[in-house]
Write a protein that binds this DNA or RNA. Structure first.
Lengths: 247, 247
DNA sequence: GGGACGATTTGATCTGAGTCAATTTTCGCG
DNA sequence: CGCGAAAATTGACTCAGATCAAATCGTCCC
């Protein structure tokens, strides 16, 4: 049924570009700001990129070449020193947007972005995307709202890193993940997996692997969380977690 | 020379509203995105607000009622717990913009904003300001750029709070202040004042008053900074500070 | 100038989290 | 199912920064 020149095999004619129409994050991502007609412009400049766990999408300090949407998988945003110390400053889940700098060419990426799981991105060249921001105010407004939201999250995390105890940090982290998973519909009736290994959790909440491990053990002993294996959370008492997370 | 009906005493007729024309941050603030004609709209909805040190402009959790520019003075953005622990998540200097939430009414302020020195604000009602954002894309673009910049700063601070030593934190703080003062032209040939007391510095960089004090003493002994009194920095070796600040 | 209160510095001691070093568990894979 | 490597846990000990407790400094006001 599809046209011979269709960019990808699609079930049928649709009122919006085939690729975007089939996109898992068509509505939950920034793209939700655009109508079916408008999104053709975006589709026209997008390309796909797949990464395996551990692969780096962009490196801190590299020239900033493009924006992107996460369509599948989990990535970490991190900043690091030469001596191995690193801080994970954000997690990227499906429908999250990547693009920390606006304006002229010559700007550089502020953070390294590394795939944690198999990762699928939908990439847009910087200059062309900025043109679209000019054309579609709703897109720019949504980007502003998301950026303000990120700022909010970053400041929450500053409180965690600056003032919380180890137990509070771990509880906060699990609470955040549990909520994100619920909101993204990523957890079945049998709970959900932690998206990060202990070493990444440690780098995210400003502790060491050992301390993270000890605190998780304590939360289990206290009956606040129930786990199967090291990564899978079977259930957690949200109220108790909230209580344990401080503030 | 001025007209009788001028809102404030102004030297002469000008092509833009008297109040904005006289504003110390007319060009360095968000308002710099607007032409002399356009800014009349902003001027029409603005009002002034003065606060003394320690007074609170908005409280974390209050309904978000307006946006504002800082025209004079220093304020701190903070989030806190009931038990007295608090984290300063940002500093506001002249020309900085206040407005952490977009969208519908009913949203609440994410942070408390408290004056550190005598503070002058130029305030805009939320809904009316948002209307102007719709009308002037350049204004919205500039707000987006500033917000991305804030996000960048917040993430830098996450690295500091999550991974830096006490010495590195204090050096980083002084370096930041020195740069801000330089950029804002706020320091004369005889150096500049630290905008915060020890207790606020401690709340900003996630340490205690005592540790901040000790580290400042050490930086002085190392000849990296030279001070007169507890608040005035006479000179500082920017390279050595940068070196000491890590990363 | 002097008194007084708050801010800062300094000192002594304590402690939560880090470090170093083994285990033990998990999990992919033949 | 069982092997092996990587990840996670656990234990013993250390240490950077917190806490508690005095001095000392600054500065505002009379």
């Amino acid at each position: 049924m599809g046209h011979i020149h269709s960019p990808t095999a699609m079930p049928d004619d649709v009122s919006e570009p085939a690729v975007c129409a089939a996109c898992a994050v068509r509505n939950s991502s920034l793209c939700g700001a655009l109508s079916s007609e408008e999104i053709a412009d975006l589709n026209g400049i997008s390309r796909r990129k797949s990464l395996r766990p551990g692969q780096v999408h962009v490196m801190e300090g590299d020239p900033a070449l493009d924006f992107a949407n996460v369509t599948q998988g989990v990535a970490k945003l991190l900043r690091g020193a030469e001596d191995g110390r690193q801080q994970i400053v954000g997690l990227l889940l499906p429908s999250d947007f990547i693009g920390g700098v606006m304006g002229d060419k010559g700007k550089v990426e502020p953070c390294t972005i590394e795939a944690v799981s198999d990762l699928e991105l939908c990439i847009f060249p910087r200059d062309r995307f900025q043109t679209l921001l000019d054309r579609y105010p709703a897109l720019e407004r949504k980007l502003l709202e998301r950026t303000l939201n990120e700022l909010q999250l970053a400041r929450d995390w500053m409180v965690l890193l600056g003032r919380k105890t180890a137990r509070e940090r771990v509880a906060t982290f699990i609470l955040h993940v549990a909520r994100k998973m619920r909101d993204h519909g990523c957890h079945g009736p049998v709970g959900f997996d932690l998206p990060l290994a202990r070493s990444d959790i440690a780098d995210h909440i400003g502790l060491t692997i050992e301390t993270v491990s000890r605190q998780i053990t304590l939360l289990r002993k206290d009956g606040i969380i129930d786990m199967k294996g090291a990564r899978h959370i079977v259930s957690c008492d949200m109220d108790a977690l909230s209580e344990a997370s401080g503030f």
